[in-house]
Each structure stands twice: as structure tokens, then as C-alpha cells.
């Protein structure tokens, strides 16, 4: 072939050179085989890693978001529960307070009623005592008055009034004396 190459000025350009075919095929197939064995798997590995990284990242982010959502839901549920409980406790406290107030008021009213009752009773007892005393004294006083009236002449009108006035003044004195006496001794 070399000789024809050298010799043939007009070698047909469509005619192949066998050595080129052989060398070209070997070079290409060797190149293909080496690249396929060594280089392209690396590229594919990097692509796959990159895809995994990106998609994995997205997936992880989604998972985290999901988790955060669940957690938030939980917290909100909890918070709502707590709030309801707090409201319930407040209501209870208010109700209890009201009850306590009512009880206290009832108690106080009862006490007041009792005190009033006792006051009434005391007053009634004092009146009875006074009345009894008065009744006893009035008898005596009436007898004295009558004695005095009888002892003197009941003739003159003026005398009579004098006598009565004097008696009454005496009575007043008596009353004053009695007022001071029970005030000193009769607190009970």
C-alpha cells in the first residue's frame, strides 16, 4: 500500500487506507473501553450523588417540616388543654370564692341575728326587771303619798298641789338615785 501511496498521484480519495482503518478502530475501541471502565462511571457516580444530595436534602427538609408541624400541633393541643384547664380552675376558684362569701355572709347574718336576738332578750329582761321593781316601789310610794295626803288637810287646793309637787320631786330624786345605782352595779 505504501508504494501505491507514494506512486499514485491520482489515488481515488474514496479508497480507504487499510492501516488507518486498523489503527483507527483499535485506537477508538481502546479509547472507548478505557473511558467506559475508568472515567464515565465517575461522572455517573457524581451525577447520582448530586441528585441524591439534592433530592435527599429536599426530602430531609420535608421530613423536618413534617416533624415540626406535628410538634407544633402537639404544643398547640397542649396549650389549648392548659388554657382550658386554667379557665376551669379560675371558674372553680370563682365559684368557690362565691360559695365561701355566701357562707360567710350567712354565718355573719346568723351571728348578727343571734346578737340582735340576745339584745332583744336582754332588753326584755331589763324591762321586766324594771317593771317588777317599779311595781314593788309604786305600791310603797302610793301608800306614802296617800299617807301624806291623808295626814294633811285636803282642804286647800294650793296645799294639795304643793304636796303633789313635793312628792313628785321626791320621786325624781329617787329615780336619780336608782339610775346611778344600777349604772354602777348592773352591766350584766
Amino acid at each position: 500500500m505504501t508504494t501505491t501511496l507514494l506512486a499514485a498521484e491520482e489515488l481515488n480519495p474514496l479508497a480507504p487506507h487499510p492501516i488507518e482503518i486498523i489503527v483507527g478502530l483499535i485506537a477508538f475501541l481502546l479509547l472507548f473501553w478505557l473511558l467506559k471502565r475508568t472515567v464515565f462511571p465517575q461522572f455517573e457516580k457524581v451525577y447520582a450523588e448530586r441528585v441524591d444530595k439534592i433530592e435527599g436534602g429536599i426530602k430531609r427538609a420535608e421530613e423536618a417540616q413534617e416533624e415540626a408541624y406535628v410538634l407544633r400541633q402537639q404544643y398547640e393541643d397542649q396549650l389549648a388543654g392548659l388554657r382550658a384547664e386554667a379557665a376551669r380552675i379560675r371558674d372553680d376558684a370563682r365559684a368557690e370564692g362565691q360559695q365561701i362569701k355566701a357562707e360567710l355572709r350567712a354565718q355573719a347574718e346568723e351571728e348578727a341575728e343571734r346578737i340582735r336576738q340576745r339584745g332583744h332578750e336582754q332588753i326584755a329582761a331589763a324591762r321586766e326587771q324594771v317593771a317588777r321593781q317599779l311595781r314593788a316601789e309604786i305600791g310603797g310610794i302610793s301608800v306614802q303619798l296617800a299617807e301624806r295626803l291623808v295626814g294633811r288637810e285636803l282642804s286647800a287646793e294650793t296645799r294639795r298641789t304643793e304636796t303633789i309637787d313635793a312628792f313628785l320631786a321626791e320621786l325624781d330624786e329617787l329615780a336619780e338615785r336608782r339610775e346611778t345605782a344600777p349604772a354602777a352595779g348592773g352591766a350584766s
Binding site: M1, T2, L5, E10, L11, P13, I19, E20, V23
Partner: peptide, 20 residues
């Protein structure tokens, strides 16, 4: 066409073979 008939560099080896 004659310009494409390169002389061999050595033996049977021509420029295109080396280039390949």
C-alpha cells in the same frame, strides 16, 4: 486530490495514523 496523499513518516505510518 494529490494533496491528500501524504508521504509516510516512517514505514507504513502516515500522518493520519499518528494523529489517530
Amino acid at each position: 486530490v494529490a494533496d491528500f496523499n501524504l508521504p509516510p513518516v516512517f514505514g507504513e505510518i502516515t500522518k493520519p495514523v499518528l494523529l489517530l
